[in-house]
Design a binder for these strands. Sequence first.
DNA 1: CCTACCGATCGGTAGG
DNA 2: CCTACCGATCGGTAGG
Lengths: 190, 190
Amino acid sequence: MTTPKTREDVVRAAGRLFAERGYHGTSMRDLGQELGILGSSLYSHIDGKDQLLVEVIRRGAAMFQGLADEVMASPGTAAERMRALVEGHVRIITEHVDEAATFLNELRFLPVEDRAGLIALRDGYQRAFRRLIEEGVEAGEFRPIEDPAMTSTFVLSVLNALVRWYRPAGPAEPDEIASRMYEFVMEGLT
Amino acid sequence: MTTPKTREDVVRAAGRLFAERGYHGTSMRDLGQELGILGSSLYSHIDGKDQLLVEVIRRGAAMFQGLADEVMASPGTAAERMRALVEGHVRIITEHVDEAATFLNELRFLPVEDRAGLIALRDGYQRAFRRLIEEGVEAGEFRPIEDPAMTSTFVLSVLNALVRWYRPAGPAEPDEIASRMYEFVMEGLT
DNA sequence: CCTACCGATCGGTAGG
DNA sequence: CCTACCGATCGGTAGG
């Protein structure tokens, strides 16, 4: 009675397990079990385990890159665009934790031929934050910041760590998380 | 001519590989190779692979807990103690990246009987940050903060992410990193 | 610390 | 999607 699994089902289940147990902590038999089929049956949908990792991570990367492209092409002050980046980043993670977590945690296990390209995407995303910080400093919206690259790492550290503690059943709503993150990033503790 | 490996050598090499490739991405044969011996020879030093994970993570946990105990028992304003926590945290990571990274990344792979205790240690460390934030708000040193628990997560996100990007050969000195982190945590971007 | 293994599990294939 | 497998690798042991 249960309808046959699709390739899409397989990729999504892979994201779930890679996020939860890591790429090397997930066997093809685990993944089959998650879908109610045998591990060997997965190979009618995909070519190999590493292909699944590539596909899950590509999805994560694409969402973040899309956000950065959109926000950086839009008008507004540096503060306004920073708010848009924070809200978008939180939305991506709360709506797609698995792909986001796998993108952020399992990049190093990618096959060599895919690794460099996806790391470049991640670095490009970080560069958007750095440029925005530089613009904000120049415009006098932000305080003088000696090392915008390192500071962009700090901002992204706060945002990315959400994949580690976000739980859909948790007490905090995504909107509330985004607001408090933006506040913290802009004002710090004082 | 090379002196025999000690148990200490084994634990340290395990920390290195667990940090770099993850627990499940490291085989006992990999670990042996790192030390110039066979995988099976490791068992004259240790009882099992999971024991190595427990030991590496215990070391990481102990350093952070020691820092929190020391700082929270010392006098000083909330800001002064926050600075001490940031500086200590950065020092621990820059001097012991492997144990720190394994503690922060591989906790979930611990044997069930050790997991809860070490997670409790991590949570206790985070509680020190939360209490300090609450004290700083009450004393009027920090701005009013509605959710000190979530805010402590933000501060720790910035600090913990250092295990992901710190490289001893990198351009930034530990002291400089600590200063900029403290500045960011206190003032944010504005 | 090595030699020589062990059973279990891994990613993956052929054929239906 | 399953049956029935494959060679390779896994964590680990006995004996020296």
